[in-house]
Amino acid sequence: MWKTILRRVLIMIPELVILSILVFLLAKAMPGDPFTGSINPKADPAQIHHLMEIHGLYDPWYQQYWNWVVHLFHGDLGMSYEYQEPVVDLIQQRGANTLWLALFTMVLTYAIGLPLGLYAAHHEGKLQDTLVRVYTYVTMSIPFFVVLVLGIWIFGYALNWFPTSGSISATATGFGATTMSRLGHIILPGLLGALFGTVNIVQYLRSEVIDAKHSDYVRTARSKGVPMKDIYRHHIFRNSLLPIAAFAGYSITGLLGGSIFTEMVFSYPGMGLLFLNAINFRDYTVITALVLLYGFLNLMGTLLSDIVLSIVDPRVRIE
């Protein structure tokens, strides 16, 4: 199994190289240059030409790419033109914000989704099941941003229970207060995101459990004289949680990318908002870095899913 994982990691290397070349070339292909806007608009074109030259921007693309890669390995992704800060620092700050929100959302999503899915499946076809399904259908049929806007309006403005923007209160000092403040800022977006995210898990788990319930191996267990509650514990739950466990690896890296909707509505300074702004302001260095990062996260996500799956499923583990 370790061989397979190692091989997967090795395959990731060329994938990342190709991705980075593509990202780099796309950024190069964008119209404009990085200097025209950043210096005096009346500047002499000759001066820009000079700047371009000393920054190596007339070199052949592979040389420029090589320089970029070398910098990348030194942890230098360039400066953000918009924020006038190193891109790496920017991603670190925003990434931390997003990480908290993502973890919180994910924990909530599973904490709500798993019991709800199991509960619905357990009461298949009965009132309890219908209620859960109504919830999933309703949530699914409302666009996410409407939920966010409604949420922020009700709990933020009308009830004033939660802050409506930012990631931390400016007045908070000391570890306890800052932590509480951070938490306060992510509860509402996290909860709303989770309410939305659970729908998939509830529906998926429900159908997995129902399938397992009617499976032949459960019938075998019943004919062994195993009580139904033990069958749920030993056979049904474990088997139906398997695909969800595998999917978790994928969804955590997805969440790390940041939710553009949530962060925009809550003005939450995370990766999603950073990406959105970078596009708005043609902040090329940031865009390149983020696209590369998203690609990397994606690859990591699939890898993580496969690793989890190969740990929990003997059919994958032992060929």
């Binding site: 032949d216 075998t220 003997p314």
Partner: peptide, 9 residues
């Protein structure tokens, strides 16, 4: 069906 009658895990 002896395959489906056993728990695969």
């Amino acid at each position: 069906d002896p395959l489906s009658a056993l728990n695969p895990l």
